[in-house]
Every structure is written in structure tokens, then in C-alpha cells.
């Protein structure tokens, strides 16, 4: 049972005309994992999730959820999968509770009001149960989307940027609940723009770029690969001295980032700035984080 991967993606290719939105993705996600799918906008994360959920069909390759092919055995595959879509969609005709009962019915489940109540309580929606969807705020609609994805207690839960536009407090509520589900054995796959979120939650991470996996490892190993420390210099509108351009990890909106193993290199960098007459407005020294790892890997890939 637990030898079967929760998700197996083999040779996935998805073309939109000439664009290869997925360009040969192979990926196994084990049961019980908390897995992060990261990558810049347009990397193909949503495309992969859509193919996984049967919302779109791969041009080449196969995907199986808990061993069930998402095309051939779509009924079994879909019944063990819960997907929170990226877009904030809702059905304006119904109240929260009506919607959840209907969604459960689509999965062949009736009379699971106990679980629906538990979902509502865990997502802080209990006092909105009888409210029409139209009257909910964006954050609440987002949580209803999460509840809808969980209404059939799926083994595998996929969340496509679930915290976009959700305030900090609600994010905490949501993660506490998702973590609890993970501890109870549910496999979680998450895409997010908040890298600290992935760093805090995910056991393992795949980085996707232009439809290809450019890194796949445990969160720890990815962080270790970056190594050293990061120097962040705010130089306002000044130009980065030519010698430093090649050394910088990134330079964006007046902020230059450098990675270094030896603290003495900080002095060297500052010396170059001083000699070039660049005024450093602010300096930060950071421990490596996913953002650094991310920037570095995307850069290596480009090189």
C-alpha cells in the first residue's frame, strides 16, 4: 500500500501550440509527504496540477494518483484527490453548507455533516455556514475552496497557491489545519509564492522552471546546497560596479545580493562599493533561505 507513490508523474509533456508548458516532468511523491512545488510564474505548476486533476490532458506521458491513472481510472484517481484551485472561484447560488453538501454528493458521499462541521470549525467558518457565498470576503471564499477540496477526506491534497491574498492570521489557521491533516497521514502538495512558507512546511521540494524540474531534494539539502551566508546591500538608484555584476546573486530594485562562504569577503565587497563611490544605504547579512536557493538555482540553470 504505502509502496505506491501518492503521485507518480512520468514523462509529462503538455503543449499549448508551440509552447511546452510541461517539458518532460518525472516526479514521485511518497504517501504522507508534505511536498512543495515551487517555481516562478509561468513555470508550469498549475498546468501540472490541472493534468493531475484531470482538468486537462497531457500531450505525452502519464500521471497516477495512489496508483490510479488519471485518464484510464479517472474515477478512482479523482476520488482520492482533493484540489484547491488557484483561481478564487465560487458558486453564487448557494450557502457555504449547501455547497459543501453538494460537493460531498459529487463524490458519492451523503450525510457527512459531522465532517463538514469539523471542516468549518477548523477553517473558522462555523458562523458563516448558512451565509450565501456572494456575501463572503475573498479570504473566506478561499477557505471555502479548501473545505470543498477536503469534503471527501482525500488521501492526496493539492493546494495551488492557497494563501495568495489571505491575511496572516488566516494563513496560520489554514497551515495549522493542513499540518494536522498531514500528521494524520494525508499527502500534501503545495505550490506557493511565499518561500518561507514552503521552507517551514515542506519536507521535500521540487523547483520547476519553464516546464522542467531543475531541483528536487529535501528542503534541508536544498538549503545546504546554498551554503554560506547572504549579503544584501541597498544602493538606491546607483549602478552596481562592473566587477560586482558577475558576482552578484541578483540585483533588483536597488538591492544587490551576494553569496559568500568567508565573512572576509564582505569587507572586499564593501571596499569595491566605496572605491566606486556607491553609497550603501542599508546592509543585511542573512542566513541562507529558500529564496536564495531559488535565485541561485534559477541562475545556474540560466548559465
Amino acid at each position: 500500500m504505502s509502496d505506491i507513490p501518492a503521485i507518480r508523474v512520468s514523462g509529462a509533456v503538455k503543449c499549448f501550440g508551440a509552447l511546452r508548458a510541461l517539458d518532460g516532468v518525472d516526479l514521485d511523491i511518497r504517501q504522507g509527504e508534505f511536498f512543495g512545488l515551487l517555481g516562478p510564474n509561468g513555470a508550469g505548476k498549475t498546468t501540472l496540477i490541472s493534468a493531475l486533476a484531470g482538468l486537462s490532458r497531457l500531450t505525452e506521458g502519464h500521471i497516477a494518483v495512489m496508483g490510479h491513472d488519471v485518464v484510464r481510472d479517472y474515477r478512482q484517481a479523482r476520488s482520492v484527490l482533493g484540489v484547491v484551485p488557484q483561481e478564487l472561484v465560487f458558486d453564487p447560488f448557494f450557502s457555504v453548507r449547501e455547497l459543501l453538501r453538494i460537493q460531498a454528493g459529487y463524490f458519492g458521499i451523503r450525510g457527512n455533516d459531522d465532517w463538514i462541521d469539523e471542516l468549518l470549525a477548523n477553517l473558522d467558518l462555523t458562523n458563516k455556514a448558512e451565509t450565501n457565498m456572494r456575501q463572503l470576503s475573498g479570504g473566506m471564499k478561499r477557505r471555502v475552496l479548501v473545505a470543498q477540496a477536503l469534503v471527501h477526506k482525500p488521501d492526496v491534497i493539492v493546494l495551488d497557491e492557497p494563501t495568495a491574498g489571505v491575511d496572516v492570521e488566516l494563513r496560520q489557521t489554514l497551515w495549522r489545519f493542513i499540518r494536522k491533516l498531514n500528521e494524520n497521514g494525508h499527502t500534501i502538495v503545495l505550490t506557493t509564492h511565499y518561500l518561507e512558507e514552503a521552507e517551514e512546511l515542506c519536507h521535500r521540494i521540487a523547483m520547476l522552471k519553464a516546464g522542467q524540474i531543475v531541483a528536487l531534494d529535501t528542503t534541508q539539502n536544498i538549503l545546504a546546497r546554498v551554503g554560506g551566508q547572504t549579503l544584501k546591500l541597498h544602493i538606491g538608484s546607483a549602478a552596481l560596479p562592473a566587477v560586482l555584476v558577475a558576482k552578484a546573486l541578483s540585483f533588483d530594485a536597488g538591492v544587490a545580493q551576494f553569496n559568500f562562504a568567508d565573512p572576509l569577503q564582505v569587507e572586499e565587497t564593501l571596499r569595491v562599493m566605496r572605491e566606486a563611490g556607491v553609497r550603501v544605504e542599508e546592509m543585511e547579512i542573512l542566513k541562507p533561505d529558500l529564496e536564495q536557493a531559488f535565485i541561485q538555482m534559477m541562475r545556474q540553470e540560466a548559465a
Binding site: A53, R75, R78, S79, V89, D91, Q103, Y106
Partner: peptide, 17 residues
């Protein structure tokens, strides 16, 4: 309406033949 608002996904995600 479901297609334009996007809520058609709620019937496309479940195992409905």
C-alpha cells in the same frame, strides 16, 4: 455561467462520468 465564472471545476474535479 459556470464556465465563465470558473466554478465548473467543482463538477469537473469529482469522479462524475
Amino acid at each position: 455561467q459556470s464556465k465563465i465564472t470558473g466554478n465548473i471545476v467543482f463538477v469537473l474535479l469529482p469522479p462524475i462520468s
